[in-house]
Amino acid sequence: MGLKDLLRNTQNDILEQNEELLEDYNLINTFGSPNKLFLKFLNSKNLKIDEDIITEELIAEFQDSVDSINLKLEKIKKQKETIFKERKVWINIPSNDDEWVGTDLLLDHDGITIKETNEKILYSQMDEIEILDGGWSKKKVLIKLEDRDLIFAINEDLATPLKEILEDNIDNESYDEIDGLLELYSLFEEGKISEEELEIRKAVIYSDDVYCTNCGHKLDSDSLFCPECGHQILFDDI
């Protein structure tokens, strides 16, 4: 039941007071219900919208937390783009004498390679990826493989972006996402595409939608031919 519907069936002054404040701050959706993210925030504070008086200070704290989350997501996005562009990231791996050795982790379309040992691990061999505390501005990335665990240390700012990249490529093993992004950045740096076109093409790469590989027209999932250029849609295209 939406908040407005609930108000019609109750004399609860707290609800009425909260409704006015939430409407002032655009925290009620078109169905008359409070913003779901705000409700989760209240729940984390052990507060209930029909029992506790909501204050402007509480809403300000919520908005600060949302801004903090958005800033963190934007930072992760930029770090991911940097990793895609460089096609490598600096890591530390444990050596035989219990010390840690610095090396590059190289990203390919089908897997990763540890430069120091020249070991190649395919995305298809990866089962799960976890981020563990590493101390001293470092995180440890644990990759569960079919027969063992691979662990390495990495700058904490790069841990989550790298984890997301690896998980994206595990989910899209048949799609050469990294090479596609590298090609886009190359075109952009050569001045062949604008920054706006770069962002549009990146959105296409990250999207689950299907596009014609000949002209780029968006396709229906069951298309056999592109309605724009007539190109035959092969299984590999999808």
Rank of each mutant, 00 (worst) to 15 (best):
E173D: 14
T213V: 13
V101S: 12
E195Q: 15
S65K: 11
W90P: 09
I200Y: 09
I114H: 00
K88R: 15
Q63I: 15
G191M: 04
L122E: 14
I49E: 00
E19V: 13
K144Q: 04
L39R: 00
L166A: 00
K77G: 01
D52E: 03
D179A: 13
Q125Y: 08
Q232I: 14
S65P: 04
Q79A: 12
D104K: 13
S124I: 11
K45V: 05
L150I: 10
G216I: 07
R148G: 01
F62D: 00
L58V: 01
L184Q: 03
L6W: 09
K115R: 10
I93V: 14
I76Y: 05
G180E: 11
D104E: 10
G180H: 09
T10D: 09
F152N: 00
I200R: 09
R148S: 13
E20K: 05
K48R: 05
K78Q: 07
I76C: 01
A159L: 04
M126T: 04
I238M: 10
S186F: 09
L6E: 11
R87A: 13
R201S: 11
D209S: 07
G2P: 11
F41Y: 15
K163G: 01
E177A: 01
N155L: 07
Y175R: 15
T160C: 03
W100D: 01
E56K: 15
L105P: 07
E167Q: 09
N43E: 08
E195M: 12
E116K: 13
D52T: 10
S137A: 09
P34E: 06
L27W: 02
N18G: 02
T30Q: 14
S65T: 09
C226Y: 02
V89S: 08
G102D: 15
K4M: 08
P34R: 02
I54T: 02
A203M: 06
D222I: 13
D171R: 15
I69L: 15
V101A: 07
L107E: 00
G102A: 12
W100H: 12
G2C: 12
N43R: 08
E146D: 07
I131E: 02
L107V: 05
G102T: 13
I112A: 03
I238N: 04
S186D: 03
N43L: 07
K85Y: 12
Y206G: 02
D168C: 05
A60S: 10
R201Q: 15
F152D: 02
I193H: 03
I112Y: 02
I143T: 07
S194K: 12
E173M: 15
N46K: 13
T30V: 12
C229L: 05
V141Q: 05
E190C: 05
D50E: 05
F62L: 04
L58Y: 02
L3P: 01
Y185G: 05
Y211M: 00
S68D: 04
I53S: 06
V66S: 00
L150N: 07
E173A: 07
K40G: 06
K88V: 10
L7I: 15
D157A: 11
